[in-house]
């Protein structure tokens, strides 16, 4: 039984390593510090831009920070929050980000 559990845990990880080849996220596939994503988050709720402290409290991420993994991880948090917890706010979220210091990109969520 112990062996089965241990092998199942390893098999899950190998499956996630393969799965990571087809998606932008990198969960449970052992990709630590593989990407430096510098980002800036702007969230507008009811026409008011949230402060840095409000952004931190909302997403548990600083308004301006660096994530040491795929930018998709930050996007998942922003989108996940707005769809699951903050859906009634109809927030407009903009994330500017740079991957490994390269050109700035913009990701947006919500109506403009």
């Amino acid at each position: 039984m112990r062996t089965v559990v241990g092998l199942a845990i390893l098999a899950f990880q190998l499956a996630m390593i393969v799965y990571a080849r087809f998606v932008p996220s990198r969960y449970f596939c052992w990709a630590p510090y593989d990407v430096q994503t510098e980002y800036w988050i702007t969230t507008v709720v009811n026409g008011r831009k949230l402060t840095a402290r409000e952004v931190q409290a909302r997403y548990r991420r600083p308004q301006h920070g660096t994530d040491n993994r795929s930018p998709q991880h930050v996007m998942d948090i922003l989108q996940g929050y707005e769809e699951k917890y903050g859906w009634s706010d109809h927030a407009e979220v903009t994330m500017r980000y740079r991957v490994n210091g390269k050109g700035e990109r913009v990701w947006q969520l919500g109506a403009r």
Partner: peptide, 20 residues
């Protein structure tokens, strides 16, 4: 085996990343 899987995943992710 767990250690081997960790290093395999870490190395594979990097070698497939153009920025690395």
């Amino acid at each position: 085996l767990q250690l081997a899987v960790v290093y395999f995943g870490a190395g594979l992710n990097k070698v497939l990343d153009p920025d690395w």
